[in-house]
């Protein structure tokens, strides 16, 4: 059985600031990032849907010790965002001074953009990641 939405298609779309997910025709849950089956009921009766890219920060961290090759990006903020449509996705947060942010970030409304991680010798090519900025 083929994926309704592969990483490659999701990635291509995110590079145009369009966030794709999967809507379950069985339980109506939205799954994002995409998987073979619905996040909640494991149904394969899914259809591709475009998400708003709007949501709120549920948690964050500011990274000071980076993986090899990304040392010059530190410090940077990684956030988990609960999208309006339900799922959580991981990305980076911009428009802040990472060294000064704290718990007040949790609950802030954000909107999605993107930035491409060019990949390294251990990754299979590049990957766009969500880049969030404040919407409130």
């Amino acid at each position: 059985m083929e994926y309704k939405l592969t990483f490659r298609e999701y990635n291509k779309s995110l590079k145009t600031d369009k966030l794709l997910g999967l809507k379950c025709n069985n339980c109506h849950t939205i799954t994002c990032p995409p998987k073979m089956t619905c996040q909640e009921c494991a149904s394969t009766d899914l259809e591709v849907t475009e998400l708003s890219g709007e949501g709120k920060i549920v948690t964050y961290t500011v990274i000071y010790v980076a993986p090899e090759g990304r040392e010059n990006e530190t410090p940077y903020a990684v956030v988990l965002v609960e999208l309006k449509e339900g799922p959580w996705i991981m990305g980076n947060l911009i428009d802040i001074d990472p060294a000064r942010v704290g718990m007040e970030l949790i609950g802030r409304q954000v909107k999605l953009g993107h930035k491409v991680f060019p990949g390294d010798k251990y990754s299979d090519g590049d990957a766009a990641r969500p880049l969030f900025s404040f919407a409130d």
Partner: peptide
């Protein structure tokens, strides 16, 4: 997840920091 989460520069301490 190397496709959906590592590109954000996720690290192991980052997971527990969050």
């Amino acid at each position: 997840d190397s496709r959906y989460e590592s590109p954000a520069g996720m690290t192991f301490p980052g997971f527990f920091g969050m």
